[in-house]
Design a protein around this nucleic acid. Structure first.
Lengths: 249, 249
DNA sequence: CGGTTTATTGATTCCCGTCAAGCAAGGTGG
DNA sequence: CCACCTTGCTTGACGGGAATCAATAAACCG
C-alpha cells in the first residue's frame, strides 16, 4: 500500500503576496461577510480597510499585543492558537477567506487572547476596531450579520469543548479531520483533499493529543482505507466510514 | 479538620417562583444587557418579553428542539450543557442574572445545540428570535452590545478549550473553581462562597474529569487550606494560593 | 428515622504521553 | 543530478495519571 507521494496541496499561489489594491477591492465585495450591502457601501467600507500580505509562517499578531484592530482574511489560511506552557500550543481554528479575527469592537483596552499566524501565503484586510465600530453604526444590517457569524463560532467552540471533553483520541481525530474536510475540503477524483498544509503536530494541537499519537491513529485510518496521507497533507477517502467513527460509543 | 456542615448556599428564594409581572419589569431595566437604553425603549422591549418561572431541575429546552426563542436570565442560575454518550454530560456554562441564551437571530430553522436546565429556582424572560431581530433593527446600539457580549463569550469558550487541552486535572479544577468564584462568588467573612449548588459531578462535567477524581483533588485542596467544601457547596479560602496552582508548569 | 442522593476511598486497569531512535520527503547548492 | 541538511513522520518500549469498578459513609428530606 504505497500511498506516499508529492503533496497534492496547492502551495504555490502567486509569489507576489502582498495583495494588490485593485484585487482587494474585488475581494471585499465578494466576501460573504459583506454580501447584501449596496455597492456604494462596499466601496465606502473598502476605502477604510488596509491590506497586508503575509508569507507562510509570518505572524499577524501575538497573544498579549494590544487589541486594536479587526482583520478579515481575503486569501489564504490563518492559524489561530494559544501558546501552551512547554511549547505545545492549542490550535483553536484555521480561518480562510471571509473569516474575521482580532478585535471587533472597542471595549476598553485589552490584549488579544490568542496568536495568529499565516499557515499559507495570505492576504488580510484590516481596520482599526474603532473604525469598524463606526461602520457598524452606519450599517446595522452588518451588525446583525456579525452576530450571526459569532453565534456560529460560539457553537463551534462549544462543540470543540464537548469533543475534547468526551471523545477518545481516535474519535477526536476523526471528528477534526471531518471538520477540516468541511471547511477546507476540495473534491478530487475520488477523495476529499484538505487544502492546507496540515502537519501531525497541527492535528495534535487541535485534538489535545501528541504528534506521535496522531501519527499512530492516522496510520490506522490509512490502513483501513479511510484516509490517504503524507507529509503535510491529508485526504479523506471514505467519508462515510470516517463519520461512523465519531458517532456512537 | 471537621468542616462538613450545612450548606451555606442560599437555596430558599421565595417559593412563588414564577416571576411576577411587575417584578420582571424592574428586572429587565436593570439588566446589564439593556443598560444605557432610554426608559421608554426598555418599556417597549419589556412588553414584548414573556416571563417563565422554573423550579430547580426543570428544563428550559433540550438539545435538538427547534431553536426559535431567545432567553434572558432574570433571576437564578441556568446550566447549559451538552449530552454525552453514556450519560456523562459536558457542562459548558452556568448562566446567571443578565446572561442570555438560546437563539439570538433568525438564521434559518435549526436546533438548539445544547440543553438548558435550572440549577436553582429561576426566572427567565423570553422572546421569539424573530421579535428580537426586530428589536435589534430598532436599537442598533443593542446589536453592538450583543456583539461585545458574544465576543467575551467566544474568548471564554476558547479559553475553555485551551484549559482542557493543556492543563492537568488538578489545574483544570483549580481554574474552574476560580472562574466560578469570579462569576458566582459571594464574599463571606473570610472566604469566597460559590453561590450555587455545585456538585462533584457538575465540576467533573466542567473539567472533563470524573466525580471520583474531582473528589480526590478537592479533598487535597481542602487539606491544604485552599478551599472549604461540603455536599453541594464550595468556598474558596485562599484565593491567592489557588491561583498559583493554575499558573506555571 | 428510613430512604435517597451525594461524596469518599481503595484497588485495579488502560489509554495515551514520554522518550528515543530511525526513516522519508523536500529543498538547496555545488 | 546527486550529496547534504532540515523538517516532518514513524515506530517501539515504558511509565504514569486518571478512569473504572465497587463498596461505604455522610448529608439531606419527608
Amino acid at each position: 500500500m504505497k500511498t506516499r507521494r508529492k503533496s497534492p496541496v496547492n502551495l504555490t499561489t502567486t509569489d507576489q503576496h502582498y495583495c494588490s489594491i485593485d484585487l482587494r477591492l474585488k475581494i471585499l465585495g465578494r466576501l460573504p461577510f459583506f454580501e447584501g450591502l449596496p455597492q456604494n457601501a462596499v466601496n465606502s467600507i473598502n476605502q477604510r480597510f488596509n491590506s497586508i500580505g503575509y508569507k507562510s509562517g509570518e505572524y499577524v499578531y501575538y497573544a498579549g499585543d494590544i487589541a486594536e484592530r479587526l482583520y478579515v482574511v481575503a486569501e489564504g489560511k490563518i492559524k489561530l492558537f494559544q501558546h501552551g506552557t512547554n511549547g505545545r500550543n492549542v490550535l483553536l481554528d484555521i480561518l480562510s477567506e471571509g473569516d474575521f479575527f482580532g478585535n471587533l469592537t472597542v471595549l476598553g483596552t485589552f490584549s488579544y487572547p490568542d496568536t495568529t499566524q499565516a499557515l499559507t501565503p495570505a492576504c488580510v484586510l484590516t481596520i482599526q476596531s474603532e473604525g469598524f465600530g463606526k461602520i457598524l453604526d452606519e450599517y446595522p444590517s452588518l451588525a446583525i450579520k456579525t452576530i450571526q457569524v459569532m453565534e456560529k463560532r460560539l457553537i463551534a467552540a462549544n462543540n470543540q469543548v464537548f469533543k475534547i471533553s468526551s471523545f477518545t483520541v481516535e474519535k477526536r481525530i476523526a471528528y477534526t479531520l471531518l471538520e477540516l474536510g468541511k471547511k477546507l475540503g476540495v473534491q478530487n477524483e475520488n477523495s476529499l483533499l484538505i487544502d492546507a498544509p496540515i502537519s501531525r503536530e497541527d492535528l495534535a494541537e487541535m485534538t489535545a493529543a501528541t504528534p506521535e499519537t496522531v501519527s499512530r491513529v492516522m496510520k490506522q485510518f490509512q490502513n483501513n482505507g479511510l484516509i490517504d496521507t503524507g507529509r503535510l497533507w491529508v485526504s479523506i477517502k471514505n467519508l462515510e466510514e470516517l463519520s461512523k467513527l465519531t458517532e456512537f460509543e
